[in-house]
Amino acid sequence: MDTYKLILNGKTLKGETTTEAVDAATAEKVFKHAANEHGVHGHWTYDPETKTFTVTE
């Protein structure tokens, strides 16, 4: 398992979190669910070198 990071750049919610996942696709599902639960919808990017997802509203 690897550690993946999410950076939230929402209009009303900003922050960072991490998750352990077997691959980037699994981490993305976890992060998108969490972002949706917090009402953050926007443009997603992924940097494979740093294993970091970013969502920007």
Rank of each mutant, 00 (worst) to 15 (best):
37 E>W: 09
48 P>H: 08
16 E>V: 14
7 I>M: 05
46 Y>V: 01
33 H>S: 12
40 V>I: 15
47 D>Y: 06
45 T>A: 10
11 K>F: 13
40 V>F: 11
29 K>F: 08
12 T>L: 11
24 A>I: 09
20 E>L: 14
33 H>P: 02
14 K>L: 08
45 T>K: 07
4 Y>M: 02
18 T>L: 08
33 H>F: 10
17 T>A: 13
12 T>H: 14
11 K>P: 10
29 K>I: 12
37 E>T: 11
7 I>T: 04
54 T>W: 07
8 L>H: 03
55 V>I: 08
31 F>L: 06
15 G>M: 15
12 T>Y: 14
7 I>W: 04
51 K>C: 04
9 N>F: 11
42 G>C: 02
34 A>M: 15
30 V>Y: 14
50 T>D: 05
25 A>N: 08
53 F>A: 01
9 N>K: 10
23 D>H: 03
20 E>Y: 12
1 M>D: 06
55 V>E: 00
56 T>V: 07
8 L>G: 02
13 L>M: 14
9 N>P: 04
24 A>V: 11
24 A>F: 13
55 V>K: 01
3 T>R: 09
28 E>V: 05
27 A>W: 01
52 T>I: 07
1 M>S: 09
18 T>G: 04
38 H>Q: 14
40 V>S: 03
16 E>T: 11
2 D>S: 13
33 H>M: 14
2 D>T: 13
39 G>L: 05
28 E>N: 04
31 F>I: 01
35 A>S: 04
23 D>T: 04
51 K>L: 11
44 W>T: 01
8 L>C: 14
17 T>R: 12
32 K>E: 05
22 V>Q: 12
42 G>W: 09
50 T>E: 06
44 W>F: 04
42 G>Y: 04
35 A>L: 14
25 A>R: 09
5 K>M: 06
52 T>E: 04
4 Y>C: 03
29 K>H: 10
46 Y>D: 00
14 K>D: 05
45 T>C: 08
11 K>R: 12
40 V>N: 03
29 K>W: 08
19 T>W: 07
51 K>H: 07
29 K>T: 09
40 V>R: 02
30 V>N: 06
13 L>N: 08
3 T>K: 09
50 T>W: 05
55 V>C: 04
22 V>W: 11
21 A>E: 04
38 H>T: 08
31 F>N: 00
51 K>N: 05
